[in-house]
């Protein structure tokens, strides 16, 4: 085993982290948007359900949410794939999505609050339904308003993928652990390399959000 084997190890680890991140990104944005929409809906039951979900899940450690998904769902016979590794991948993505969705929802809600009430009034005045007003006018503007804080939420989620290594997922932390086992003489190098890969991924994300912010900024 030399340093080149280690770079292969880290490459596959980075891919493991990235695919967890990508699926959870889609899941958390979708669920977070739904929760934010429920929280501003005129129906009290929906508002209450979303508020309860956010309160409960947001205040639960992510590790525990992962436990629920990785050990609770199999007992309820909820499986996503026959392959165990793939199943664990879906459980971890689900846990990350369910957890991060709370933060996406709260961020979006602050964005919705920042939009002048006249925007929604004008939308309703031309005959748009509540759903159309939300999806065509309010949420698109809310998303644009909260791009910077949403970036922080997403970067936090990238780093939170590291918890999945404790639940049968191979990603960067697994690669780091394997690297340390193989090359005990290079512990510090391996730790720094791992940190650097997270840094590069997070900086890349930050850059994407900067571009989005510049491109989608709303003049008022």
């Amino acid at each position: 085993m030399d340093i080149f084997d280690l770079s292969g190890l880290f490459l596959s680890g980075a891919w493991g982290t990235l695919r967890l991140f990508l699926l959870a990104l889609v899941g958390s944005l979708a669920l977070g948007t739904l929760l934010a929409a429920m929280r501003v809906s005129p129906t009290p039951v929906l508002r209450g359900a979303a508020a309860t979900y956010v309160t409960v899940v947001r205040n639960t450690p992510l590790t525990l949410v992962m436990f629920f998904c990785a050990f609770g769902l199999p007992i309820l016979d909820i499986q996503f794939a026959s392959d165990r590794g793939l199943n664990s991948f879906f459980y971890a993505s689900l846990a990350l999505s369910a957890y991060t969705a709370c933060f996406v929802a709260e961020t979006l809600r602050s964005g919705i609050a920042a939009i002048p009430v006249g925007q929604a009034e004008a939308a309703r005045a031309i005959g748009l339904s509540f759903r159309q007003t939300l999806s065509l006018i309010v949420l698109p503007q809310a998303f644009r308003t909260v791009i910077p804080p949403l970036g922080s939420v997403v970067i936090a989620m990238l780093k939170n993928t590291s918890i999945a290594s404790a639940f049968n997922n191979r990603e960067l932390i697994s690669a780091m652990r394997s690297g340390i086992e193989i090359r005990g003489d290079m512990v510090i190098t391996i730790l720094i390399a791992t940190a650097l890969i997270y840094l590069v991924l997070a900086l890349g994300l930050g850059r994407i959000f900067d571009l989005l912010e510049r491109k989608l900024v709303i003049l008022r």
């Binding site: 005129p42 002048p116 006249g118 925007q119 009034e121 004008a122 939308a123 309703r124 005045a125 031309i126 005959g127 748009l128 339904s129 509540f130 006018i137 698109p140 503007q141 644009r144 989608l216 709303i218 003049l219 008022r220």
Partner: peptide, 25 residues
Amino acid sequence: EEGARLAKLRSDVGMVFQSFNLFAH
């Protein structure tokens, strides 16, 4: 009351606001 019929009716009533309220995005 609120709902699809209200939306339909609103579409027949044009409204112009003091602060314009054009969709900013």
